[in-house]
Design a protein around this nucleic acid. Structure first.
Length: 677
RNA sequence: UGCGGGGUGGAGCAAUGGUAGCUCGUUGGGCUCAUAACCCAAAGGUUACAGGUUCGAAUCCUGUCCCCGCUACCA
């Protein structure tokens, strides 16, 4: 590998509209922190930068919903997240924010530079404008009727009921969520970054990185490049963000994806006057730690900006992780389905390392992983307590019992002693190899292997038996056991910094550099160690049940909220209703539509005729069980072709909060063709 | 549907052409210094499925199924 003079580690800027949860930690901050601490211990010149990402439409929406200003919203989460990271032991060199002056300057400068170089394409396009509020409307600020499912409160970018992504212009009866008025189309001017122009350069660069990068990252990039890149707008009509630094650009700000990664540069600037060395010297190795949702921005878009800027280095690696689920369900900020870091810190005081351990051991490195409280408990009790904590405790207690805490002299060693001592540097090597490839799970396992080695050594040599007959031999054994403890305190530090620190206190040692881990002379004879305490405590079933109950309560609440959320639609007359011709019919045949996950082709005897209806219910019903069922059919719906099959009507279904579907059927058998009214 | 990632003993993962391995759990044994912790041993896998290439396939090729992300469809 190329020799680098210094390292620049970046962690994805968390979006300041919510607290940090275990998914963020497992995917980004735990690995980046382990990696940074590892480099520091190895004596490398390294900085780790992060900060709050504070711009963008979702924050303005959240502010509006809560009756706050965007500034108040981001202040709240910036403080909360900054403090939580600190308490958790994520050792950023700086945790900045994109709403501060340095960032405004940096982002404006970079925009200006690209503008002056003529990199941008300027385009004027029509967009919705709210005349009452005198404001252009981002897609999120427009509500209207979804053209697909008739949901009346679909947003301009997506209908949350049917999941379809939309353009604001697709909505029927659009209205502004700011003033409620009907928006009009008006021309607006924006700047676009011509990604297509950089594609050849990106292709070459990524092919070059192919061997070192993770498969998921390379695959994503390749797929984007193969599909062909489009110019992307770098500005928005909004009053929250970095103003576009040009004449005649009032009311325009930098689009958040352009502005956010520049936050890495601003944070570095704020941290050190030496920032240009970190961003412009090819001797710097830059690593972006991110989640898989961010791959395109860090591997395509931001490198394009840096490349267009001319003098910047590009990331050497982007070890993106997959996602972590919680108890088999997707983590969701809006549904409160998460383990929040600030709550964990309060409910499990002093147990930062336990969470760090579990999140690293089960990190979503190659595929999505699942966090369960049961697994959390098992890993704590059977691995941290039973293997790591227990070994350390055994060595310290034995030394105190037999030698009053004095590190005994090592006498003549037998073959087994030597074998164990030789094993130690190997473990360190394995660990280094794994970390160098961003394989954190393997690296952690390797660290634990050292504790396993220690336990086995004690079990095999049985000092508690030998002491009665051969105390000199016990001196050698405990000396070796203590050397293992000392090495453990070094190699576990990147992963479990709090516990490693305590262990060093117990052993009364400090300042051992990484490269000496595995050394057999870390603790000199006659050195006095402390009494020690337990490094880890067992976690009881009650503590786990408490967390599980909390989640159950949240799930119940979500069900109620989503069930209660659907507002009653506006009143209609009987005439409005009577235009619908709903009849009872019987399904005579049902089959899956080829190549469609959700579609069933149904043949229905409506009493009047036999007709075909295509219905999106394949995931809820086995077609074999449907023949003979009576259902309600809207028979005067305009026929429409779905996947080449003409659908002549619509089956009425009832849907609960979880999306479960059941037929609206007559309570008892009635003739086909009967009218529903 | 398209693109990407993934499918390996009960759970989580490793092994990219050469006897399928690790951690946890399970069962049996040992030990008692240690938080009933630790150590040893055993059981447990036709590597999603079906074909093919090869002396040899978890690994390469073809097809199918399933899971995740983005995407499409969901009257």
């Amino acid at each position: 590998m190329k020799k680098f003079r210094r390292h620049l580690i970046t962690s994805a800027l968390p979006y300041a509209n919510g607290p940090i949860h275990i998914g963020h930690l497992a995917g980004v901050y735990v690995p980046s922190d382990i990696y940074t601490r590892y480099l520091r211990l190895r004596g490398k010149e390294v900085i780790h930068v992060c900060g709050s990402d504070e711009h963008g439409v979702p924050i303005t929406i959240k502010a509006r919903q809560e009756g706050l200003t965007p500034r108040q919203v981001v202040d709240r989460y910036h403080e909360l997240n900054k403090t939580s990271f600190e308490k958790f032991g994520i050792s950023f060199d700086i945790y900045s924010r994109t709403s501060n002056a340095t960032h405004y300057e940096t982002a404006s400068e970079i925009f200006k530079k690209l503008y002056d170089k003529g990199e941008f394409i300027e385009k004027t396009t029509p967009q919705y404008y709210d005349e009452e509020a005198q404001h252009f409307l981002a897609d999120r600020y427009i509500q209207g009727t979804c053209p697909h499912c008739s949901n009346e409160s679909a947003y301009g970018d997506q209908c949350e009921k049917c999941g379809t992504s939309l353009n604001a212009t697709d909505l029927i009866n659009p209205r502004s969520t700011i003033s409620g008025s009907t928006p009009v189309m008006r021309d607006t001017r924006h700047w676009f970054l011509p990604l297509d122009k950089y594609a050849p350069f990106l292709k070459k660069w990524i092919e070059d990185k192919k061997k070192e990068w993770k498969a998921n990252v390379y695959g994503q990039c390749k797929s984007w490049l193969d599909q062909g890149l489009q110019p992307r707008a770098v500005s928005r009509d909004l009053d929250w963000g970095v103003p576009v630094p040009l004449e005649n650009a009032t009311g325009k700000v930098l689009y958040v994806w352009f502005d956010a990664p520049i936050g890495y540069i601003s944070a570095t600037k704020e941290l050190t006057p030496d920032w240009e060395n970190y961003w412009k010297d090819p001797g710097t190795r830059m690593i972006h730690f991110i989640g898989k949702d961010n791959i395109v921005f860090h591997c395509i878009v931001f490198p394009s900006v840096l490349h267009a800027g001319g003098s910047y280095i590009l990331p050497d690696n982007v070890p993106a992780n997959e996602f972590m689920n919680l108890e088999n369900n997707k983590i969701s900020t809006s549904r409160n389905w998460a383990v929040w870091l600030h709550e964990y810190l309060e409910e499990f005081p002093g147990k930062q390392d336990v969470l760090r351990y579990v999140l690293c051991a089960n990190a979503p490195e190659t595929k999505d992983s699942d966090f369960t409280w049961k697994d959390f408990q098992t890993r704590n009790n059977n691995e941290l307590v039973a293997i790591y904590g227990n070994f350390v405790n055994r060595a310290i207690v034995l030394t105190n019992n037999y030698f009053e805490g004095n590190v005994p002299e090592r006498g003549e060693m037998n073959e087994y002693d030597l074998k164990v001592l030789e094993e130690m540097p190997k473990i360190r090597q394995n660990l280094e190899n794994s970390l160098d490839q961003f394989r954190f799970r393997d690296a952690l396992k390797e660290a634990m292997n050292l504790a396993r080695l220690g336990n086995k050594y004690l079990a095999d040599t049985e000092p508690w038996i030998i002491f009665k007959t051969d105390p000199n031999r016990v001196q050698t054994i405990l000396n070796i056991a203590l050397q293992i403890c000392a090495s453990l305190s070094v190699i576990t530090e990147p992963f479990l910094p709090h516990s490693a620190g305590r262990l060093k206190q117990f052993l009364n040692i400090s300042g051992i550099p990484w490269d000496r881990a595995g050394d057999r002379e870390l603790i000199p004879p006659r050195h006095v160690i402390g009494k020690g305490e337990l490094l880890f405590a067992k976690i009881t079933d009650q503590e786990i049940d408490r967390q599980l109950n909390k989640l159950i309560a949240i799930r119940k609440m979500n069900e109620k909220v989503s069930a209660g959320l659907l507002p009653v639609k506006k009143n209609i007359s009987y005439e409005d209703f009577s235009v619908l011709d709903i009849r009872i019919g019987t399904i005579t045949k049902a089959e899956k539509v080829a190549k469609a996950k959700k579609l069933l082709k149904l043949t229905i005897d409506t009493g009047l005729d036999s007709r075909t209806v295509v219905s999106g219910i394949a995931e809820h019903f086995d077609p074999l069980t449907l023949a003979g069922r009576q259902v309600s059919v809207l028979v005067n719906l305009e026929p429409r072709k779905i996947r080449g099959i003409e659908s002549q009507g619509m089956i009425l279904m009832a849907e609960d909060a979880e999306g479960k579907l059941v037929f609206v059927s007559p309570g008892e058998k009635i003739a086909n063709g009967s009218v529903v009214k």
